[in-house]
């Protein structure tokens, strides 16, 4: 891990109408770092995650990715997004394309890579997430856990510099959460830069380098997982942890 920051948010503010969903948020994510964002619903975690590749435009402040400020909508932004993979809560696999086509679309159309090269890479990624034998099926024919693993493979096919996960396991049946977290954990070990919004405290404990706790649009505290779960400093975090860790 190097110390040079890959993602930097400075003084970021965002409103949904009168609702101040991101309040003066400062965050910096180093290359190879795994940052897990936790907090109660409606605290702005998803918005924070989606702001990083400008799926949600911000109202003020700056977001810098790999030394470059996020450009406005257009080709430049498209190029930047191609370097930041994103995995959604609801998978969002392209419903009219096969699993293999889903994984190949970005590299072929955005990067203009040769189909044969992309196909080899796509198949080895599907192999890696354990779905190579389903390559010719359509998303609706797969379970939620399988679809989410394809979504991760699709993001990896672009060879991104960072991956954003927006509650990747929240829409899954409990028995399928493990298979997705396993893939994410192995990515974290390999040094992928990751920002993960999740409610999976187990994942935060083993895989995160840093836990960021958000509440009411503010970044309340951040610490290593050991420190955060053992000795949360803020009352909001203590309250949150007492509610989720008692069951």
């Amino acid at each position: 891990m190097t110390d040079e920051a890959l993602i930097v948010l400075e003084n970021v503010n965002k409103w949904f109408g009168p609702l101040h969903v991101l309040q003066d948020v400062d965050l910096s994510v180093a290359r190879g770092e795994v940052v897990v964002v936790i907090g109660p619903s409606g605290s702005g975690k998803s918005t924070l995650c989606r702001a990083i590749n400008r799926l949600e435009p911000i109202d003020s402040g700056r977001i810098i990715f790999d030394g470059q400020a996020l450009p406005a909508e257009g080709r430049e932004l498209a190029r930047l997004r191609s370097e930041v993979g994103m995995v959604f809560q609801s998978f969002n696999l392209f419903a009219h394309k096969t699993i293999l086509e889903n994984v190949m679309l970005g590299p072929v159309k955005v990067r203009k890579e040769k189909k044969a090269v992309v196909q080899d890479r796509a198949m080895s990624l599907l192999e890696r997430v354990g779905i190579a034998n389903q390559a010719e099926k359509y998303p609706a024919q797969l379970s939620g856990g399988q679809q989410q693993r394809v979504a991760i493979a699709r993001a990896l096919a672009m060879q991104p510099k960072a991956l954003l996960f927006d509650e990747p396991t929240s829409a899954l049946d409990p028995e399928m959460v493990g298979e997705v977290l396993e893939v994410m954990t192995s990515l974290a070990r390999e040094g992928m830069t990751m920002v993960v919004v999740t409610h999976e405290m187990g994942f935060a404990r083993h895989a995160a380098d840093r836990v960021v706790f958000m509440a009411d649009g503010q970044l309340v505290e951040q610490a290593t997982p050991d420190e955060f779960f053992a000795n949360p400093r803020s009352d909001r975090a203590k309250d949150f942890l007492s509610k989720i860790l008692t069951h």
Partner: peptide, 10 residues
């Protein structure tokens, strides 16, 4: 669907 496509850089 469109969001996923945008996030890939299309």
């Amino acid at each position: 669907q469109a969001e996923a496509a945008r996030s890939l850089g299309l």
